[in-house]
């Protein structure tokens, strides 16, 4: 399904020039992988490279056996890849219902749109709200997550879905992640949250742009607790 082959991203200047350093990774349908690691280790950058927002300096990305390394964001989205941003974006003039329609790629009824909102703990009263700073950070984050669910993708990346979200809603998000896995979606979650780490088929620990370790929660979690990673 998704194969990352030897991907590196180098930048000029800055404190670190190897943002990502020879990353290789495979994710199969129905697999839930959690990427964790300290701030600045390159987690979001890796997600952006998979989505096509950033281009690697070397290496290849394959999706369903075809090379998508140079494909546009739009084409990747149409092929079934979705990315829930770490920092939700303000979209002035676009309301939640319109956003969910765009995401669905077709006209959907308010009832269908509401189903996506309910999954993230919101209700139909949000449909007419503009995606602007008049919504709270947590509300924006939930709408961001709802927008990728509405795409019904086959590969979905969540970038710190727990950020700004209260515990009750994290529990309902956990249910959403389990359902995605059951329905055969390949899921990558960037997270520091233990409840989410425990769901993983595979945990990948990034540090300084490199994969430091990977394996099952049983293998990785004991090493993370007490360390600087995984505490949240």
């Amino acid at each position: 399904m998704l194969e990352i082959r030897n991907v590196s991203l180098k930048v000029k200047g800055g404190s670190r020039t190897n943002i990502l350093d020879h990353i290789s990774l495979r994710i199969k349908p129905g697999t839930l992988a959690v990427i964790t690691g300290p701030n600045g280790s390159g987690k979001s950058t890796l997600a952006e490279i998979i989505m096509g927002i950033k281009t690697p300096t070397s290496g290849k990305i394959l999706f369903n056996e075809s090379d998508i390394t140079t494909q546009s964001i739009t084409d990747r989205a149409k092929a079934g890849i979705a990315y829930s941003f770490q920092q939700p974006v303000h979209l002035r003039g676009i309301d939640v219902y319109t956003l969910l329609n765009i995401a669905s790629g077709e006209l959907i009824t308010p009832e269908t749109a509401t189903q996506y909102l309910v999954k993230v703990g919101l209700d139909s009263s949000y449909l007419s709200r503009e995606i602007s700073n008049k919504l709270s950070g947590g509300e924006l984050k939930r709408i961001e997550i709802a927008s990728v669910l509405a795409r019904r993708p086959t590969l979905i990346i969540f970038d710190e879905p727990e950020a700004g979200i209260d515990l009750w809603s994290i529990n309902s998000l956990v249910k959403v992640f389990k359902k995605l896995k059951e329905s055969g979606v390949a899921t990558i979650i960037i997270s520091h949250q233990e409840k989410i780490l425990k769901l993983a088929d595979k945990i990948i620990v990034l540090e300084n742009g490199k994969i430091k370790q990977q394996g099952t929660p049983a293998k990785i979690l004991p090493k993370l607790t007490g360390g600087k990673d995984g505490t949240n």
């Binding site: 739009t74 989205a77 974006v89 676009i94 765009i102 790629g105």
Partner: peptide
């Protein structure tokens, strides 16, 4: 804003006119 809309399947031009 454009990037976000493109990740939802719109082309750059479509994203611009939506906004």
């Amino acid at each position: 804003e454009l990037t976000k809309l493109m990740t939802l399947g719109l082309t750059r031009a479509e994203a611009e006119s939506r906004i």
